[in-house]
Design a protein around this nucleic acid. Sequence first.
DNA 1: CTGAAAGCGCTTACAG
DNA 2: CTGAAAGCGCTTACAG
Lengths: 358, 358
Amino acid sequence: MSDNEHTTVRIVDIARMAGVSVATVDRVIHNRGKVSEENLARINEVLHEVNYRPNLIARSLASGRQYTLAVVMPRFAQGEYWADFDAGIVRAEAEARRYNVAVRKFFFDQYDRSSFEKLLATLRGETFDGAVLATLFAEMVSPFTRELDERGVPYVFVDSNLPGCNQLAYFGTSSFDAGAVAARLLYDRLDPGSDIVVGRIIHRGDAGSNQCRSREEGFRSYLQQQGFRGKLHYAALRLDDEAYNREVLDDLLLKHRAIAGAVTFNSTCYILAGYLAARRRTDVRLVGYDVIRRNGQMLDEGVVTALVAQRPEAQGYRGVMALCEWLVEGRRPDTAENNMPIDILLKENIRYYKNNLI
Amino acid sequence: MSDNEHTTVRIVDIARMAGVSVATVDRVIHNRGKVSEENLARINEVLHEVNYRPNLIARSLASGRQYTLAVVMPRFAQGEYWADFDAGIVRAEAEARRYNVAVRKFFFDQYDRSSFEKLLATLRGETFDGAVLATLFAEMVSPFTRELDERGVPYVFVDSNLPGCNQLAYFGTSSFDAGAVAARLLYDRLDPGSDIVVGRIIHRGDAGSNQCRSREEGFRSYLQQQGFRGKLHYAALRLDDEAYNREVLDDLLLKHRAIAGAVTFNSTCYILAGYLAARRRTDVRLVGYDVIRRNGQMLDEGVVTALVAQRPEAQGYRGVMALCEWLVEGRRPDTAENNMPIDILLKENIRYYKNNLI
DNA sequence: CTGAAAGCGCTTACAG
DNA sequence: CTGAAAGCGCTTACAG
């Protein structure tokens, strides 16, 4: 049928078939306009006929186009939740580099909404071709995405999803269902009449993330369905004040003798765990979120019954790669809402969870 | 320091710095020999000095080198365990294509060792640049790897690891610990004195995979540690013979009234589940392996208490990608033994597990 | 609106 | 042992 020994169809082949030059074919492929109607039609026809697939490697090499991605995420210390997310970003970065995609990270303080406000101001002065946005401060993220829409900058959400925005994709768990999972894990080990402590970290200017709120809703909803008859008691704890926390918890546990369960809806369950271990309250079952180092230790030691986790590395990795594929190849993610697996960690399987990176 | 406006150092830059041509630099980079001692030394020095990083995209485009990977795996029907593994292969294939790496699949019948024998004979007549080997028939895989070693063909193991081979890497779970996880999940819901049924599928010429053996060891070891006082009863079941299975199980459950738990060590726990559902034996807790469709359904319906899973897609994906990176970039995997996460699925979190691909 | 030509960074014969 | 030159498939000025 042809004297062409190439198995893959190249632009020159298209050009020859359509009787034009490669430059014209290129214009059509990239919708750059400036092509006569008839050439446009003919070239498109050929393109379809041979099912043309561009060689992305050649494209990348030739174009020399550099993309920059902004990753907007909480500042973190080693061993904290967002460090795992960052590990995913680092992996994606290495891969994206091959396609001339660079990653710039922008940090805010997750416990200080004004820091996020300031960061947004900074972002307004920066240029980038795509953004990965951690949605902790939902009320501020939403309006900011309008600006990105206007600038024509695509963005991806991670951590928790936001309705009414034009996100290219979302990577994270269903917070509501993650709440139900925690409830199941705790309730499996509880009498229906037991009470439960809910540990909460109080921060300056932090009304609690919407993720935590959704988790709690899911948690309560599950208990209700199962006929839970006990009560939930809130313990307002502090991040680095062991003595204070001890006092609060001593008080609470003394007052409510029916307490046999405990839960936190963010990654700080090691605080409650530390207390229970110190007081030798092996009668209280504790369930929390995220496999950060200190939580993992407490699970290992048997103080924590179970952890619910959300693959932060995968969220980071896939967030970056989704933008990368969109920019470089013009390929949209198969699914916009990627509700990722809700992982369950027990003493018996936690040691392998670090090998979690995709 | 330089009038060169390039931020990345290219081969021409190296050549200029060393006072040679690009061809000579290329020879040094690829150890092709035929370079004088002094040039070799000088070029290597420059290479180190500037920390040269080749542009892989350009390399790939220029070399046109095609690699072929052989994936040796069980034949499967839709909805079966190896279909999930295959999904990972397919994803990796799409990615590897960009680097001129092609994938060829070679199938055997996992329940028929002679089929594997035949396949190995076929493989001896085929040429490929790397292989992903599912190690179900361990006794035959080991000697075959000697041949691959001689041919200089790198290989990766999946499913279960084999000692004493030169595998580039292994991707799979620790079968022993996966056994302990199943035991924990079952025992959590059992009285220490209850008996347990172990469901086993009997095949022609199949002595049982070493993966199942290891899982059972881990399972027993956990129970022993926890002070389990009941007995394990084996039920020899058939793949597609419901009537037969019913008879066997009716018999067993009648004889041993203490049975309150059940387990299978391969992916066929839906068989036991089907029986329990039909007989309305809600008093028997069942734990099994792998989120194949029929198992997932039974978990959803509450017949199965928990499933233990091993990320087959990730195993396939990472197996291919590891070989890809080794061949194209000469980069070895960070770790040779990649014991992947052991996942726990309950009714409450299974619906998100399909979004498991990396 | 169109095409010839140079170039992306590397590899590969080929001639010496 | 060495280097000049062509080419991988695509993009990008540039001249018309």
